[in-house]
Design a protein around this nucleic acid. Structure first.
Length: 919
RNA sequence: GGGCGGUUAGCUCAGUUGGUUAGAGCGUCUGCCUUACAAGCAGAAGGUCAUCCGUUCGAGCCGGAUACCGCCCACCA
């Protein structure tokens, strides 16, 4: 900071410097000393395809606050950063890029996007697997670091020397190791089942990657003629095109309508095939007609019915969503075109009985929003039940704490009814499944290294598996694979298990649950001790932010405008656990104002500090080092401090305690709020105002004790604020302490956990003075005398209070804006108008205007009414014997005290009214 | 079809185990350019805590029901 300190805080000139320095100095690399208490956390790795959005920023802000807080507590903190290869997302982006190169002239837009995508897919096939993967790596090198650079700019206190990527060679080794071990144990298997198939992406996806959407659909009632004449059975379906693959009609065995038909055959319209009528408990007689068409190759329920009845499975829809040869005349049609054609033909043949509107939930591909097709296909699966059990117990018995608690139950519910996980993807970018097929005998070899020959028959003609693993397979290993597993590394020994994991609810099952399962399986313990689920960020209309809605707030943009610290603070103070958080420019504005307030408070102190004789400056700086934390010494011992100094110190201690408590429970909003209130409304509004004359005077005798206390409190306040606002506090800390630029507030010792209790006597005394000052300001405002400095008359029965006022008369005069005070012991009985009462004192502004008796009466009457209401309530409680008997003593005493105060205040008001009446 | 969360000031939200007078920010109104800050200072107005019933000496908070809003899970064609 130059001697001329600007009045307006400009984050844009200060933040980038520190951000750069922190990274260059490797400031947040933990020590490798196993003796010091450690705190470790791995970042939820953002996708390399991603740009930083507000959700990231919230997550990183919360993490960073905690990391900086733990560092302040003297712990050895590791925040390990990294990125995820995002198999499907990356492949799509690279494909689109290929498509765009081939078709550069298209007008950008949704239509072009899908054209590029299709063309890109074609070109991918053309160039082949190896070339395409090379291309993906290239893309990753060029774009995959964007988020990392953004995070650095936002001051995330990661250890960048430990940056990891899910496709690093070492990490890939861990993935292969896990796959092979699980396969050898029979927990990974291969089989032909119905899976969710995305025809657009051309791959299977897991259940979790399918989102369900309520859509208006129809229920078509189709007549299946009974073989040999004699009527028909009507089935209802939401997907008429699948009838082409029907291999049975099923009815409930107890359904009297169809009992006789079971075992007979019906004719499948359009294709003229005959299919049996079977009885199965699955069928609900109350739905539709009570008869169900069975399409084993395209419906999971029908698949199971077919298993039970040994029915054939006919695939009529292919991997592109088009009808197969088995669909006869409909072959080659898209599945939705086929639907229309089938309905049209059935209508023409008079076999369509009716059509009803029907709401149904449609499965949509999470990635590309295509309608997912349940499709028979050979895939790799992970058996989940045996893996889930230990992961359930770890949460049940508290080895992992889930915060907020509501998510514990959601986790347990989901884990309780978990299904096997389809882990193979028909994609190229990702971890290739380490399996080889023998072209001679057909046996599958799963191995850590490329096998040269078949393990069964020794043939050397092997075909490697082409499928890759679901991205979430590799991220499930994140908490230990990033630390060097499967090797027994020092990092693994020192930092595993992680102390904490933070994530959004949206990936609790995708990632959180699977990490716990893999941790239990391969490390024999929970991968982290606590799991904190953070809120979702929404815009001012409570909408979830998304690119398609166009309501995305770009953190970098907003940060540039308001400052990182302000945005961080706005997020933190809005982040109550378990609730969504709403952000808006308004909010950022108010916390930018807060940053400016901090800046100016420090500026004020510094400006005056620099006017002090050099010797005094030295003395003050001396008192700040070595870091005394919150300790006192001889100069600034409590008995040498004035009331205001003791008061602000007491408030500082209380605030520190509250902020610690709140952060310990992830109550970011509460911690931020306490610190905010302390800094602005106690430190600035009262304390700085109070000591202003002492520190602005350049008198021969600087108030050394006050100066020391002031700088200490300010320094402590910067520490308190630092986790929330790292940049401005780093900057100001250097100015206040005059420490070298190479040092950092984040590593400065600070006695955060103080065993000192607050100082209730000073607090009470200061509070009484505050009451008086506020009362005078009020009275002045009521009389519109704000511009003047009138004299006042104060009467008080309590001699100690009177003494207190007298002792601080100058401050009171200055802060209340009055000229002189006339004190009386006792009550104000001789005056007829303009008297303001409180329980402890009476107050009258002396001024020339005649007080209007009518207005005066109105004011007092209103006051009387309020007091009487309050009195009635406290009396009621005191008269209630049950309350007196059962309520705790301190509650009763509180009511009694209040009642006494009210009574006193009320009596004074009544007396004033009476006197007023006499005039 | 199950499960969960929400409903508090004009707006956005706090309110930790039930306890005296329900808070904050923004907005509104009044007055101040008081030599740190007008992105500021000093004041003010504004709430039957969604509704009903219950438990209790005492309920914004605990229990039950209702209404509306939102979310998650689910293989009923």
């Amino acid at each position: 900071m130059e001697p001329e300190i600007p009045k307006i805080y400009s984050p844009e000139t200060i933040e980038p410097q520190w951000a750069r320095q922190w990274v260059e100095q490797k400031l947040y690399r933990p020590s490798d000393d196993p003796a010091s208490p450690r705190f470790s956390l791995t970042i939820p790795p953002p996708n390399i395809t991603g740009l930083l959005h507000m959700g990231h920023m919230l997550e990183h802000t919360e993490i960073d606050i905690l990391m900086r807080w733990h560092r302040m507590k003297g712990e050895n903190v590791l925040w390990l950063p990294g990125t995820d290869h995002a198999s499907i997302a990356t492949q799509m982006i690279v494909e689109r890029e290929l498509g765009r190169e081939a078709l550069p002239d298209l007008e950008p837009g949704p239509a072009a996007q899908s054209a590029w995508q299709r063309e890109g897919q074609r070109r991918r096939q053309e160039m082949g697997r190896e070339k395409f993967i090379e291309r993906c790596w290239l893309w990753k090198e060029e774009n995959g670091g964007t988020i990392r650079e953004q995070m650095k700019r936002l001051g995330a206190s990661c250890d960048w020397t430990r940056d990891r990527f899910t496709m690093d060679p070492a990490y890939t080794r861990a993935v292969v190791e896990v796959f092979v071990r699980l396969y050898e144990e029979g927990l990974i298997y291969r089989g032909k089942y119905i899976v969710n198939w995305c025809p657009r992406c051309g791959t299977a996806v897991s259940d979790l990657e399918v989102v369900h959407e309520e859509r208006k659909g129809k229920l078509w009632y189709i007549r299946y003629p009974i073989e040999g004449g004699g009527g028909h059975i009507t089935v209802a379906t939401t997907r008429p095109e699948t009838m082409l693959g029907d291999t049975a009609v099923a009815v409930n065995p107890s359904d009297p309508r169809y009992r006789e038909k079971v075992g007979t055959r019906v004719e499948l319209p359009l294709l003229k095939r005959f299919i049996p009528v079977v009885a199965d408990d699955f069928v609900d007689p109350k739905f539709g007609t009570g008869a169900v068409k069975v399409t084993p190759a395209h419906d999971p329920n029908d698949f199971e019915i077919a298993e039970r009845h040994k029915l054939p499975r006919i695939e009529v829809i292919n991997e592109e969503g088009r009808m197969t040869d088995k669909a006869g005349p409909y072959r080659g049609l898209d599945r939705f075109e086929a639907r229309n054609a089938v309905v049209k033909d059935l209508t023409a043949q008079g076999l369509l009985e009716k059509i009803e509107d029907h709401m149904l939930s449609v499965g949509i591909c999470q990635r590309c929003h295509s309608v997912v097709e349940p499709r028979l296909s050979t895939q790799w699966f992970m058996k989940m039940k045996p893996l889930a059990e230990p992961a359930i117990r770890a949460v049940e018995d508290g080895r992992i704490q889930v915060v907020p608690d509501q998510y514990r139950k959601i986790y347990l519910d989901w884990m309780g009814k978990i299904y096997d996980w389809c882990i193979s993807r028909q994609l190229w970018w990702g971890h290739r499944i380490p399996a080889w097929y023998c072209l001679s005998c057909g046996v599958v070899t799963v191995a850590r290294q490329d096998p040269s020959a078949c393990t069964k028959c020794g043939s050397t003609s092997l075909r490697p598996e082409t499928d890759v693993l679901d991205t979430w397979f590799s991220s499930a290993l994140w908490p230990f694979a990033t630390l060097g597993w499967p090797d027994d590394t020092p990092d693994l020994r020192l930092f595993f298990p992680q102390n904490l994991m933070i994530m959004g609810f949206d990936i609790l099952f995708f990632w959180g649950a699977r990490m716990i399962m893999m941790g239990m399986k391969f490390m024999n313990e929970a991968p982290f001790r606590e799991l904190y689920i953070h809120a979702l960020v929404r815009d001012a209309e409570r909408q979830k932010m998304s690119k398609t809605k166009g309501n995305v707030i770009d953190p970098l943009e907003i940060t540039e405008k308001y400052g990182t610290d302000a945005v961080r603070f706005a997020l933190a103070i809005s982040a109550a656990p378990g609730t969504d958080i709403v952000v808006s420019p308004d909010k950022f504005d108010s916390y930018r104002a807060f940053a400016n307030k901090i800046w100016n408070a420090a500026r004020f102190v510094l400006m005056n500090y620099r006017k002090l004789p050099e010797k005094v400056q030295q003395q003050i700086a001396e008192a700040l080092r070595p870091m005394p934390g919150l300790g006192f010494d001889a100069v600034a011992a409590p008995e040498n401090l004035a009331l205001a100094d003791r008061w602000i110190f007491s408030r500082l201690l209380a605030t520190t305690g509250e902020a610690n408590e709140a952060l310990g429970h992830y109550r970011f909003h509460e911690a931020a709020d306490k610190v905010y209130h302390f800094f602005w409304h106690e430190l600035c509004d009262w304390y700085l105002e109070w000591v202003k004359p002492e520190i602005t005077q350049t008198a021969a005798e600087p108030a050394l004790a006050t100066w020391i206390n002031l700088t200490r409190v300010l320094e402590a306040a910067l520490h308190l604020l630092h986790p929330f606002m790292p940049f401005i506090t780093e900057e100001l800390w250097h100015e206040i302490t005059r420490r070298p630029r190479e040092e950092s507030i984040s590593h400065a010792a600070f006695d955060l956990v103080s065993d000192r209790v607050a100082d209730p006597i000073s607090e009470k005394q200061f509070q009484t003075i505050q009451e008086l000052i506020v009362a005078v300001r009020n009275a002045k405002a009521e009389l519109s005398l704000q511009r003047q400095r009138p004299s006042v008359q104060i009467a008080c029965e309590d001699l100690r209070v009177l003494e207190l006022f007298r002792a601080h008369l100058d401050s009171i005069h200055r802060l209340a804006g009055i000229e002189a005070t006339n004190f009386t012991r006792g009550r104000m009985t001789g005056e007829t108008a303009g008297v303001h009462h409180t329980a402890t004192f009476d107050l009258r502004i002396l001024h020339e205007e005649k007080v209007d008796p009518a207005a005066e009466r109105l004011r007092l009457e209103r006051e009387r009414e309020k007091l009487e209401q309050a009195l009635a309530q406290s009396k009621k409680q005191l008269d209630n014997q049950s309350f007196m008997d059962r309520a705790p003593r301190d509650v009763v005493r509180g009511v009694e005290r209040r009642n006494a105060e009210l009574t006193e205040h009320h009596r004074k008001v009544l007396e004033s009214l009476e006197r007023l009446g006499k005039t």
